[in-house]
Design a protein around this nucleic acid. Structure first.
Length: 266
DNA sequence: ATGGTTGTCATACAA
């Protein structure tokens, strides 16, 4: 049986519930991971998503900012929330699901954006981001016995040269500075994570999941970045059938600045 | 070098 999982930074689930419903009707992933839901747990539209078949929902929300959730057609168990950097932000949630007799731990992350200035001395938000990814190094894809793992989310870092529209012009821009890109690659190496998007799309090809709201014409300029990611444990990687980045979602009515990314396994 | 946009919550702040 095939299985699919989507990740999408939705930038307010309450404002964008209509496009989430459209996406779920159209793509119908087995699991949807959301970031920046920007609501408290009791404000999440559980009934509307349940009506579309996503009756297994785990939420880690907070008032106004951040917040992550997993919405699934498959049962979710053993959900867990980790407070990275101990600052009380809702930026991580994980749960167990099963596919083809496999037990799979799914992690959904929203890594801090890091502010504008790539210097931890003058910009504490950049320091927080670096500390957050340093703490992520301890997360192994092989952490649990007899358990595969998938890690998705808005990691707010575009690690490779062709994950940004201009490598050279982005080297001092937060999301593509060497300390961030090397930090994220170190998280992958230490945890033995496989970058499934780049397993499917060669590193030599441009690949973006985010386009700024500030561009006059995002499509014409096409100055995107690959900030959203889907990783897996080595044992799941051979089952990846394809990856879809739904670029057209950036042009939908009242869009998020991120588009959904879906991995199909089979 | 600068400003450009969006969302939340109520006036800045985070992105």
């Amino acid at each position: 049986m095939t299985f699919s999982i989507s990740t999408w930074n939705i930038n307010s689930i309450r404002l964008r519930l209509p496009i989430v419903e459209d996406f779920l009707k159209r793509t119908a992933p087995d699991i949807l991971c959301l970031q920046e839901i920007k609501c408290q747990n009791d404000q999440f539209p559980v009934d509307e998503l349940t009506a579309l078949g996503y009756s297994n929902i785990v939420i880690h929300g907070q008032k106004g900012y951040h917040g992550v959730a997993i919405c699934s057609k498959l049962p979710l168990t053993e959900d867990h929330r980790q407070d990275y950097c101990g600052v009380g932000d809702s930026r991580h949630i994980s749960a167990i699901f099963h596919w083809e007799g496999r037990r799979i731990r799914l992690h959904n992350f929203y890594v801090p954006a890091g502010g504008d200035e790539p210097d931890r001395e003058t910009n504490p938000k950049f320091g927080h981001k670096l500390d957050f990814i340093a703490e992520m190094r301890a997360l192994s894809a092989l952490a649990e016995q007899c358990t595969e793992a998938i890690l998705v989310g808005d990691l707010n870092i575009a690690p490779l040269e062709h994950d940004v529209w201009s490598h050279k012009q982005m080297l001092k821009i937060v999301s593509h500075t060497p300390v961030e890109t090397e930090g994220l690659l170190e998280v992958m190496r230490q945890g033995q994570w496989v970058d499934l998007m780049r397993q499917h799309v060669p590193e030599s090809e441009k690949l973006y999941t985010w386009w700024s709201y500030r561009a006059k014409d995002w499509a014409a300029a096409d100055r995107g970045r690959r900030l959203d990611h889907i990783w897996s444990s080595p044992g799941l990687a051979p089952f990846l059938a394809s990856i879809e980045v739904l670029k057209e979602a950036r042009g939908w009515n009242q869009p998020s600045d991120h588009v959904p990314v879906t991995a199909y396994f089979g």
